[in-house]
Design a protein around this nucleic acid. Sequence first.
DNA 1: TCTTGAAGCTACAGTAGCTAGAGACATTAG
DNA 2: CTAATGTCTCTAGCTACTGTAGCTTCAAGA
Lengths: 146, 146
Amino acid sequence: MLTIGKLGRAAGVKIPTIRYYEQIGLLPEAERSAGNQRLYSRKALDRLTFIRHARGLGFTLEAIRDLLSLSDTPDQPCAAADAIAKAQLSEIEKRLTRLASLKVELKRMVAQCAGGRIADCRVIEVLGDHSLCATDHDHPQGGDSQ
Amino acid sequence: MLTIGKLGRAAGVKIPTIRYYEQIGLLPEAERSAGNQRLYSRKALDRLTFIRHARGLGFTLEAIRDLLSLSDTPDQPCAAADAIAKAQLSEIEKRLTRLASLKVELKRMVAQCAGGRIADCRVIEVLGDHSLCATDHDHPQGGDSQ
DNA sequence: TCTTGAAGCTACAGTAGCTAGAGACATTAG
DNA sequence: CTAATGTCTCTAGCTACTGTAGCTTCAAGA
Ligand SMILES: [Zn+2]
Ligand SMILES: [Zn+2]
Ligand SMILES: [Zn+2]
Ligand SMILES: [Zn+2]
């Protein structure tokens, strides 16, 4: 059995994060020692490692919750899991597209500035007027992350 | 003078967002009508448009705050503004790199699954074991967005 | 056995950038 | 004048944590 600190080091997850995952029900409530400290099994380490890896790939905690519950029913078909992964892939692709166009715009902006006074700064000018942009680079409404 | 609704429509910003920007001091406190409703000048519209455009390019509100205060001193050299833009560009480039490697991993995962039972699902398997990944795609610590 | 320092506990507050809702007041078109 | 729409303040909520305060417990050395 591992203490929370060892579990955290083993999985690469910070202690408060582990407690947070327990609090939101992503990890089951840990067993406790006589002195009320959390104790974790090997299985808990696997689960946390799964979570950490999925987070590293950008999945939301909600998606991870679903994936974990799917992985508890190994005989079911995996279509649902695959669908979650595909959705994540397309989300990432969407963000990539958007970031690529932001990059183009920012590069243009920075390159066009001659470096004089603020009054003549192309950066400030372009920020004030989208019609000076080359692309549409639309504003997103719902953003999650990384 | 514009009411908050007209200002919002003109700039493409939702009403609560405008009030939020005022609350955090990104927009100055608006003048009020006899009936206590906010009234905005053309200048306020320009400022909000600037904010919205910069947000659309992924700048944080803090960066925008700095850019706005720089643009109030038109005779200063623009190096500071350019530095903010360059920092934003490199942030975007960092995210692009990361997202590109996530995309590779996710594509691989999805492609390798033959679509059987969960027990044999490549998606679930890879999520549980990073050594099955082709790249490092490191977990970030501080994520902001889009 | 005693002591000390590290590790763990709970609970709450804070981060970014909004968004949504309740319940009251203002403005405007017909 | 009335009804519909717009706006007001205030509060709480979202994601995924992170940090703090003020305690208790544990492990190792003397
Ligand atoms: Zn410049
Ligand atoms: Zn633009
Ligand atoms: Zn599968
Ligand atoms: Zn991996």
